[in-house]
Design a binder for these strands. Structure first.
Lengths: 239, 239
DNA sequence: TCGTAGATATCGCCT
DNA sequence: AGGCGATGTCTACGA
């Protein structure tokens, strides 16, 4: 199923890539190229050796020396391969792989040389995941005292004009409580988010209702702790 | 500089990958593998053909069938390669590439078979980028009327207890103005952010100062527009 | 399709 | 090293 080509000429590489793509395979191309992206932004990469990965869903990824994120990419567009013939020497020919996204986004990768190409039938993701914010929600519902002693959850994802409250309930004194969960260390945006929910609930509910906000996370930054205090909100540590 | 190996046995692949890594090269390995990540979350990928990219900065990427983001990854850890010997048949041996990040993050990729391996000397990113929020700031400073007629910018990235205001200035009437820039369509978090800044400035400045907030972006969602209105904030469209 | 919010977010800047 | 906010964020999930 997997096919490999070493040091092909550009015509061979182009044929190899298009054949693989029409067979529903992923193609990895390693070679010297220039890259240009235009659309939501403009980006250019100078001549250099990179790896291009062309997935069966027509995602294009250009990876260079470092980092988790690609140096350039395109997704959602139609991908085309061609060999640009130079008028002079054949050594000026270029293998061009390009994606033309619908919304003005366009990526063009121009190879002056291809060192290796591999085609393979890739596995779908189908991953098992745990340890996310949704797991934290399960934990809180199973053990509401994590929020605070006496807390009783009444709903999850409750709608407000400002967005959905992760967990909605009442405290031991019967006050309305909005709980915002964060899976990691909480920053200022979490405090703002919670404040928006609390403000929206105060407006929506009867004027005599007391609405409290509790941020539940395994840690909080100092500035965020201060912001919470200034807004009369509570932090509950679940480390 | 670029080297390729087709259908190597696991020992050859292991030697190839470690040699390439010690030469400061990037290595692409295509083969059948299982993947496990533990740390901030847990994730497992079942047996399947994927591409592993091992960059010189010890970033590991595992790419499958679709999507721009890798199905699994690790960065910042030390990467090790080894062949796990099975007690029975040699066909039960596994090529293991693993990254042990400092903070409990660990990625392990176990290949049962390697179909192709390529080593190459990758180019550094060194990209030219434009069209970002910082470009929008340039535009606003060059032409303050984009914010509103008569606006005069006085500072950028002005510090407040709630964070840095993108552009700080005064309007035609001499009122203090906090400007928040968004490069894309602005959502509720942008409104919250601006409100935090305005509140902080009102607290910091003399009580008699009027502080206004203006969100400048190429569009805004409906809910956000309502949030802005409720907080007495202004939206300025720069499409 | 649009809006909203999470993510093993990553990345870059500044303290 | 940690906080903070942008990102061509991407991606999943609802309305």
């Amino acid at each position: 199923m997997t096919r490999t080509l070493a040091d092909p000429d550009l015509d061979a590489a182009a044929a190899f890539a298009s054949d693989a793509a029409s067979d529903g395979l992923a193609v990895s191309v390693v070679g010297a190229c220039r890259v240009r992206f235009t659309g939501r932004a403009e980006r250019r990469l100078p001549e250099g050796v990179r790896q291009l990965l062309w997935k069966p869903d027509d995602t294009l990824l250009v990876h260079g020396e470092s980092g988790r994120d690609p140096d350039a990419w395109a997704s959602g567009g139609a991908v085309a391969v061609e060999v640009e013939r130079a008028s002079g020497h054949a050594s000026d020919d270029r293998l061009v792989v390009k994606s033309d996204g619908g919304a003005a986004d366009a990526l063009r990768v121009r190879f002056s040389a291809v060192h290796a190409a591999t085609a393979f039938d890739p596995a779908s993701a189908d991953a098992t995941v745990s340890g996310t914010e949704s797991d934290l929600k399960e934990r809180v519902l199973a053990n509401p005292d994590l929020v605070e002693p006496g807390f009783r959850p009444l709903a999850t994802e409750r709608e407000t004009p400002a967005g959905r409250v992760d967990v909605y309930g009442r405290d031991a004194d019967g006050n309305v409580v909005a709980v915002e969960l964060k899976n990691g260390r909480a920053g200022p945006s979490a405090a703002s988010q919670l404040e928006r929910y609390v403000t929206a609930l105060r407006r929506d509910l009867h004027a005599d209702a007391t609405v409290r906000g509790i941020l539940v996370a395994p840690g909080v930054t100092e500035k965020t702790r201060r912001l919470l205090a200034e807004s009369g909100l509570t932090f509950s540590d679940v480390s």
